[in-house]
Computed example of a mutant assay.
Amino acid sequence: MKLSVNLLALFGFTLSAFSFSASSSDNFNWRGFIAQGVIQAQNSNYIDDEGDVTLKLTEIGLNGSYTLDSNFRVAGQVVYLNGGNRYPEGFRVDYLFLDWRAISTLDWQVNVHLGRVKNYHWLYSSTRDVPHTRPTIILPQSIYFDAFRDVALGVDGVALVANTSNTLGDWEFNWSYGSSPISQEQTKNLIAEIATGDIEQKFVHQGNFVWHNQAVKFSVGLLDSKFKYNSGENDAFFDGDAQIQRFMLQGTYETQNWQLAMELFRERSIYSNLVYLGFNNDSHGEGGYIQGRYNVSKDISLTARLDIFDLDRKDRSGEARSALSGGIVPAYFGYQDQFTLGTSWTFSENWQVQAEFHRVKGTGRLAPVFMPNTIQNDHKYWNIWGVQLAHWF
């Protein structure tokens, strides 16, 4: 167990140092957060290759906005993350954009964002970057694939957010277009450790309609994205292309103490060349989750979730994929089903602790994708548990 008294003492001192109020003025506002946890993903390389207990559950961030005038403001966030193998460790700018209030009337509110804009199309896509706003430490991997976190969080481009209301309820339309940079470390996470080239996202185009009233929220959305792989020196892979097309349904139902949430998707993935010249793969994956949350009190909540993912809807067992590899890749790499139990406790102002347990069947959402790590991931069934303390200011 890789824990030490010195590390924990340092963590406590760091949290104390950050326990102060955020600054604000008429034009400038900023907020921050710091979160540290302990986590273990046994019999997998999800967190680290050894599957040991680790402190690789660190999130530190600062965000702010500056109001230029009644119609323009600038908003941004910088974070430091250490999540082990889930995503590259280090600093990154999650978003930095100009927000233009294009229309503001009694009937319509329309904002246009330019720059590194956020993804507002999924239930938790715009809040997954702030630890105390997530329902659990680890989000459902069928939708919120950790290896794709930085790419899915937002794009360098333009976004439009429009809101209106009528007698039927409140309506919202979100649209965005742009691309995200992908580092070589992310490329290795997505393709294979031995890949020496790089992935370029040509574009991602998303849109969704949302309807909601006081208790019910429903959304339907579409995504279309293209990628290009540029092979490197002595690369095992070839220049290739990929296209991802996704259809999504989302819904929530809320009462005073209960919330039910679900997101479902069908995704078409088209790969050309990449593995070898002339290679072509066109498949449809499916997945989604259903989640229930119960507020025991205003400070304590319980969460239960079932999350299901199939890499190919025509090969839900993964047997065909395994046969294609000559049995080298086990069939359980074709899917990943996950049951989660979690709790959160806001025990003091701006302080929260979350704890959760995940029972997982399959490894279809573990990185890398094209050349799976069959050595560390040699179990069909495996577990994750984690505890994280968060403070925001």
Rank of each mutant, 00 (worst) to 15 (best):
A152M: 15
Q338D: 07
S21T: 15
G288N: 06
S104Y: 07
I308E: 00
H121M: 14
D52T: 06
L341P: 02
K226Q: 06
S269Y: 13
K228L: 07
W385M: 04
T164I: 15
L123D: 02
V93W: 14
S142W: 15
S325T: 08
R365W: 12
P135C: 13
W382S: 02
Q184L: 09
H121Q: 13
D310I: 14
G51T: 03
G61W: 00
G292N: 05
S283F: 11
N189P: 05
T187E: 13
R268C: 00
G178S: 09
V158T: 14
Y124I: 11
R116G: 00
Q336C: 11
E349F: 14
G240I: 05
R305G: 05
V210A: 04
T127H: 05
D48R: 06
L8C: 14
A9R: 11
R359Q: 08
K2G: 13
N189L: 10
F247W: 13
R268W: 12
R134Q: 07
F209N: 09
I199R: 05
E193V: 02
D235A: 14
N273Y: 12
H379W: 15
A147N: 08
T127L: 15
I191H: 10
A242G: 13
G90M: 04
W392A: 10
R316Y: 05
G61P: 01
T343S: 12
H121L: 05
S24N: 14
K2A: 09
G342E: 05
V220Q: 13
P135F: 00
T346V: 00
V117C: 01
Q352I: 03
I138L: 10
A320L: 14
I270C: 13
R31C: 00
P131D: 08
N27L: 13
H358C: 07
R266Y: 07
P135I: 04
K188C: 08
L8V: 08
S297Q: 08
Q77N: 04
K298R: 15
A261R: 01
K361T: 07
V110T: 11
R92C: 15
A242S: 15
N208W: 05
Q77K: 04
D307I: 05
F279D: 12
D378R: 07
D235S: 04
W258A: 08
N29E: 15
F227D: 02
I34K: 00
G207H: 11
P181Q: 07
Y124E: 03
S16D: 13
D310L: 09
F209A: 02
V353T: 08
Q206A: 05
A22K: 00
Q245G: 14
K188D: 10
T167C: 07
Y87R: 04
I375L: 12
N85C: 11
Y95S: 04
S65N: 12
A390N: 09
L302F: 11
S104M: 14
H391D: 03
N208E: 01
G251F: 02
G251P: 03
R316Q: 05
F97Q: 10
A367D: 03
F347E: 04
L57C: 04
W345I: 04
G76F: 09
G292T: 09
A331H: 08
T164A: 06
N27S: 12
F28D: 14
